[in-house]
Amino acid sequence: MDGTTAKADLQRYLRAAREALLWKLEGLSEYDVRRPLTPTGTNLLGLVKHLACVEAGYLGNVMGRPFPEPMPWDDEDAEPDVDLWATADESRQDVLDLHARAAAHADATVEELPLDAPGEVPWWPEERRHPTLHTLLVHVLAEVNRHTGHADVLREMADGAVGMRRDDDNLTRGDAAGWAAHHAQVEQAARDAAGRA
């Protein structure tokens, strides 16, 4: 496989993961996209904001192509984890627009540089501090997919919506009765296993 094909494959998967993440917010109220659904505060809009920062950093700044906007943590008074949630003053559209700009900047980096172009990640250990664009693309793709998986679970918790994509949920049971039966089966297996332990 040549570099052009490898790059196109990685970009295609990255774009698909971005799309899957963003549609998890569609149709939800302002509250539901922001509310913390885990004890650690994980929320849908915060995941989008975080991933905008990830892409701007790894596929921009790290590759010597600085993202032209300050990041949330650049403010010396920034709270810890400020990239993982949206303040009341940040609109949903503000965060979505930041994500779109960061993705476009990242895509331009990928298009303009060869896969073997070196970057520098100052916060990584010395032995890994100078990865190639290829390594960074894999890293970002893993990060986006990891958080898109979080978004899958959060969306199901918020309103029951499930699935991999808008046009194909990629699920085997299509109705509430099927899912209820499956849930009961899994619950019973867990109880049976716990009883044997």
Score class of each variant (00 low, 15 high):
residue 4 T to H: 02
residue 5 T to N: 00
residue 5 T to A: 15
residue 6 A to R: 15
residue 7 K to H: 06
residue 8 A to P: 01
residue 9 D to T: 10
residue 14 L to S: 07
residue 15 R to L: 15
residue 15 R to P: 01
residue 15 R to G: 08
residue 16 A to E: 09
residue 16 A to L: 14
residue 17 A to W: 00
residue 19 E to Q: 14
residue 20 A to I: 00
residue 22 L to N: 04
residue 23 W to G: 05
residue 27 G to Q: 11
residue 27 G to E: 07
residue 28 L to Q: 00
residue 30 E to F: 09
residue 30 E to S: 09
residue 33 V to W: 01
residue 33 V to M: 05
residue 33 V to E: 00
residue 34 R to Q: 10
residue 34 R to D: 06
residue 36 P to W: 01
residue 36 P to D: 08
residue 38 T to F: 05
residue 38 T to G: 10
residue 41 G to E: 04
residue 43 N to P: 03
residue 44 L to V: 07
residue 46 G to K: 01
residue 49 K to D: 07
residue 50 H to F: 05
residue 52 A to D: 07
residue 52 A to F: 01
residue 54 V to N: 06
residue 54 V to C: 11
residue 55 E to Q: 13
residue 62 V to C: 08
residue 63 M to C: 04
residue 66 P to M: 13
residue 66 P to H: 05
residue 67 F to E: 00
residue 69 E to I: 06
residue 69 E to N: 07
residue 70 P to H: 05
residue 71 M to V: 08
residue 72 P to M: 02
residue 73 W to F: 11
residue 74 D to M: 06
residue 75 D to Q: 02
residue 77 D to I: 07
residue 79 E to L: 14
residue 79 E to R: 13
residue 79 E to S: 13
residue 79 E to K: 13
residue 81 D to A: 12
residue 83 D to F: 08
residue 84 L to V: 00
residue 86 A to F: 09
residue 87 T to M: 04
residue 87 T to L: 09
residue 88 A to R: 14
residue 88 A to E: 14
residue 90 E to D: 07
residue 91 S to M: 11
residue 92 R to I: 10
residue 92 R to G: 00
residue 95 V to A: 09
residue 100 A to M: 12
residue 101 R to L: 11
residue 101 R to H: 13
residue 103 A to N: 06
residue 108 A to S: 14
residue 110 V to G: 01
residue 111 E to S: 15
residue 111 E to F: 04
residue 111 E to V: 15
residue 112 E to A: 15
residue 114 P to I: 15
residue 114 P to D: 15
residue 115 L to P: 02
residue 115 L to I: 08
residue 120 E to Q: 11
residue 121 V to Q: 02
residue 121 V to G: 06
residue 126 E to D: 12
residue 131 P to Q: 02
residue 131 P to S: 06
residue 132 T to N: 01
residue 134 H to P: 04
residue 134 H to L: 10
residue 134 H to A: 15
residue 136 L to E: 05
residue 136 L to H: 00
residue 137 L to H: 00
residue 138 V to K: 02
residue 139 H to E: 05
residue 139 H to S: 01
residue 139 H to Q: 12
residue 140 V to W: 00
residue 142 A to V: 05
residue 142 A to C: 09
residue 148 T to P: 02
residue 152 D to W: 02
residue 153 V to R: 09
residue 153 V to C: 06
residue 155 R to Y: 06
residue 159 D to E: 08
residue 160 G to I: 11
residue 162 V to F: 14
residue 164 M to D: 01
residue 165 R to S: 11
residue 166 R to F: 05
residue 168 D to L: 13
residue 168 D to P: 07
residue 172 T to M: 12
residue 173 R to W: 14
residue 173 R to D: 01
residue 173 R to V: 10
residue 173 R to S: 03
residue 177 A to L: 13
residue 177 A to E: 14
residue 179 W to K: 12
residue 181 A to G: 09
residue 182 H to S: 11
residue 183 H to C: 11
residue 183 H to D: 13
residue 185 Q to H: 13
residue 186 V to Y: 00
residue 190 A to M: 13
residue 190 A to K: 06
residue 191 R to W: 12
residue 192 D to F: 07
residue 193 A to M: 07
residue 194 A to R: 04
residue 195 G to Y: 10
residue 196 R to K: 12
residue 196 R to W: 08
residue 197 A to H: 09
